[in-house]
Amino acid sequence: MEAAQAQWVKVHPLIVRVTHWINAFGILIMVASGWRIYNASPLFPFRIPNELTLGGWLAGALQWHFAAMWLLVINGIAYVTYGIVSGHFRRKFFPLTPATVFHDVLGALRGKLAHDDLSVYNAAQRAAYLAIIVCAVVLVFSGLAIWKPVQLQEITAIFGGYESARVVHFLTMALLVLIVVVHIAMVILVPRTFPTMITGRARRAS
């Protein structure tokens, strides 16, 4: 019995798994409804196909966007508070240097990045997950800048005004979507990481 248990290692704590999946659900709603809102007055000379959007029309999309906003903010506060207070961020994301990130990204591109111990993130993962957190923070503040350019005009001013806050909000969304696409591609390439994000455990590589 003990020998069998010893083969499993705990990789992701419960709170990380729960906040991860709430986040995945919330971001899907935010991005799909945000694309519909974008289509009402496109910033760039292209539109997002309506089939990929959520809400049916502008009012519906806005309802989704401003409902999921609360879910994501509460979830994000829970995750970041846990990450800082428990030392999760310090242990999992650091140390992190540009050289190690470069080395591991190159390794990943060559298909030579080892995933022996899923409880330790490689430098490419560390950089990507930290970038997602930074993107989320920029999205929240640029979103507030667009939503409340009078009441929270100090935040809007940080982004250089209402119109540039819209551009920042859109481009940060694009960056976040890009990272998520790479993230999902990596999960497909290393499928055993997927059940780990649900059960929290991984079989120790022998």
Partner: peptide
């Protein structure tokens, strides 16, 4: 399947939830 986004929005329970959130906002 692609339409499900619209249909989801049209669902009565989802509509109530979204309107409730709009009231909260």
């Amino acid at each position: 399947a692609l339409l499900s986004g619209c249909e989801l929005t049209d669902d009565e329970g989802v509509q109530r939830l979204l309107m409730g959130m709009s009231g909260l906002n």
